[in-house]
Structure formats: structure tokens, C-alpha cells
């Protein structure tokens, strides 16, 4: 058994409006960062998992994302597994 550090990035799908990102974009413009064209805000979830191998961990975390960590209707996710 090994210990894995897993990072899950959850982002709103490109077609879903992100009002929080829009507001942050406006604030960045107000600060003078006019070159910023877009801002989208997501979530970073860090998990510590003990399991046999990275493949199994990835499979399980994908499952967790479909069931709980993300809402597939509005969000995409990326799973990154590190030993």
C-alpha cells in the first residue's frame, strides 16, 4: 500500500456562465490589469489516499467526482495523482 496525494480541479463548463469570474475580471480591470481577457473560478480539492497503485486511485477518484465532488451537468474535472 502506498500513500497518494490527489488533486482534483473542478471547473465550470465553458458554456456555463461564471458570475464570480466575471466580477473578479471587472475588479482586475479596475486595478489597471486591462490585458486580462477572462477569469473563471473553480475549486481545488486535495485528497490523501492509501491504495495499491496510481491507476486504482485515479479510477476511484473519477468515480468520486461523478458521484459527489463535481456536478457533471455544470462542471468538468481533472484528476491528478502523485505518489
Amino acid at each position: 500500500m502506498k500513500e497518494f496525494k490527489v488533486k482534483v480541479e473542478v471547473k465550470l463548463k465553458p458554456v456555463v456562465l461564471d458570475p464570480q469570474g466575471k466580477t473578479v475580471l471587472t475588479a482586475l480591470h479596475n486595478l489597471g490589469y486591462e490585458k486580462v481577457e477572462d477569469a473563471r473560478i473553480g475549486k481545488l480539492i486535495e485528497l490523501k489516499i492509501t491504495d495499491e497503485d496510481a491507476g486504482k486511485v485515479k479510477e476511484r477518484v473519477n468515480d468520486m467526482c461523478m458521484k459527489l465532488l463535481s456536478n457533471p451537468v455544470i462542471e468538468d474535472f481533472v484528476v491528478n495523482v502523485e505518489e
Partner: peptide
């Protein structure tokens, strides 16, 4: 969220 109804409810466009 439970899947009993389709779609999702997201943050109000006004925030």
C-alpha cells in the same frame, strides 16, 4: 443534485 430532476441550480447571475 439527487438526479430526481434534470439540470442544475447555479449562482444567481447578479451574484
Amino acid at each position: 443534485e439527487s438526479g430526481l430532476l434534470p439540470g442544475a441550480l447555479i449562482t444567481n447571475s447578479s451574484l
